[in-house]
């Protein structure tokens, strides 16, 4: 049984057996528990999951921004261009963050400094990482604002964040993230706080930028619509583990893991609107008291005694896909029927 995907020749990021735990007063929370994936050059990898699945902690682990204490990366490795990020000193990490790897967060208002002009905030990383002088950096800031589609960029650089709308602020965040031509952009729910027409603008922009600059993108989201719109490959997380990964077409058209199937079916569809929605009964398990076997077993309609007692390994199916489910192993003795239609 294979446990990992065959490595691509030159991935930009490799996450191997990553475990990030939080040591709280109530006990140890295994927020990420043995996660493997790769990000290829120039691709958009979507990490999907519900709240508490560990998708944001994964991105913070890559950025080495896990608050410690209580959090700690306890096992595994993260490499960026072949070099381990976990052995870097804080000073070395600062050279990488905002320079080679940038991040956009969900709420741009809290990640922009309200007392500095937008232009100065873009110029800051240019001065720091590229050694630009102030005048040159501000000129570059105008160019970046134009790049992300902000009209009247000349005027906007000297405005404060509160003078901009939500969509504009998110564009400014993207401009800051792109300032130093990063090789990897991590976007954590970049459009969740935005209206759908503005979300459409931002997704359109991200697609254009990827084509222009060939930046690799990790897109973290709970919105499968957004995933279908921009992702090349998809990693589905549940309770701190990757349950399935594959290319976007396979995930949407031929999902394997019962959780992925359930997620897709519980969405109100654009195709049919009659009949009841499929639901995944129950709730995400408490991370302090995880079930002993498969973490999805308590909510899974296929679960057998095997699922409830033993943890399934990650297995490779097809060419590029992995799934963490007993159903796809030779030890499976339960119902093999395709997902029952409602």
């Amino acid at each position: 049984m294979m446990t990992r995907l065959q490595s691509h020749p030159d991935p930009i990021v490799q996450v191997k057996g990553l475990k990030t735990y939080f040591y709280t007063e109530e006990g140890v929370v295994p927020a990420i528990d043995g996660v493997d994936f790769e990000v290829l050059r120039g691709e958009t990898l979507a990490i999907v999951g519900e709240s508490g699945s560990g998708k944001s902690v994964t991105s913070l682990s890559i950025m080495r921004l896990i608050p410690s204490p209580p959090g700690k990366i306890v096992e595994g490795d993260i490499t960026f261009n072949g070099e381990s990020l976990l052995t870097k000193t804080n000073a070395q990490m600062r050279q990488i963050r905002g320079n080679k790897i940038s991040m956009i967060f969900q709420e741009p208002m809290t990640s922009l400094n309200p007392v500095y002009r937008v232009g100065d905030q873009i110029a800051e990383s240019l001065k720091l990482h590229q050694g630009m002088k102030k005048k040159q950096a501000l000129k570059e800031a105008v160019r970046l604002l134009e790049l992300v589609g902000i009209p009247e960029a000349e005027r906007r650089v000297s405005q404060y964040p509160h003078e901009l709308s939500g969509g504009m602020r998110q564009r400014v965040m993207i401009a800051i993230a792109l300032a130093c031509n990063p090789e990897l952009l991590i976007a954590d729910e970049p459009t969740t706080a935005l209206d759908v027409t503005i979300q459409n603008q931002i997704l359109h922009l991200m697609k254009q930028l990827k084509e222009k600059t060939n930046t690799s993108i990790i897109l973290i989201t709970h919105d499968l619509g957004v995933v279908a719109e921009v992702a090349d490959r998809v990693v589905v997380m549940y309770a701190g583990q990757v349950v399935e990964q594959g290319d976007v077409y396979t995930i949407f058209e031929n999902p394997k893991h019962p959780y992925t199937i359930g997620l897709l079916e519980s969405m109100p569809s654009h195709k049919k609107r009659t009949g009841k929605l499929k639901t995944i009964e129950g709730v995400v398990p408490n991370p302090l008291h995880l079930p002993p076997g498969c973490r999805f077993a308590p909510r899974c309609e296929f679960a057998t005694d095997l699922c409830r007692s033993e943890v399934p390994a990650v297995i490779t199916v097809g060419q590029e896909e992995t799934v963490r489910c007993w159903k796809y192993t030779e030890r499976w003795e339960g119902n093999l029927n395709e997902h029952s239609a409602v």
Binding site: V196, T197, Q199, A228, E229, V230, V248, H270
Partner: peptide, 15 residues
């Protein structure tokens, strides 16, 4: 029309 068109569709073939 714009609102409906902007609504992401959960089908990568339609992107």
């Amino acid at each position: 029309q714009a609102l409906l068109s902007a609504n992401p569709v959960a089908d990568p073939r339609q992107r």
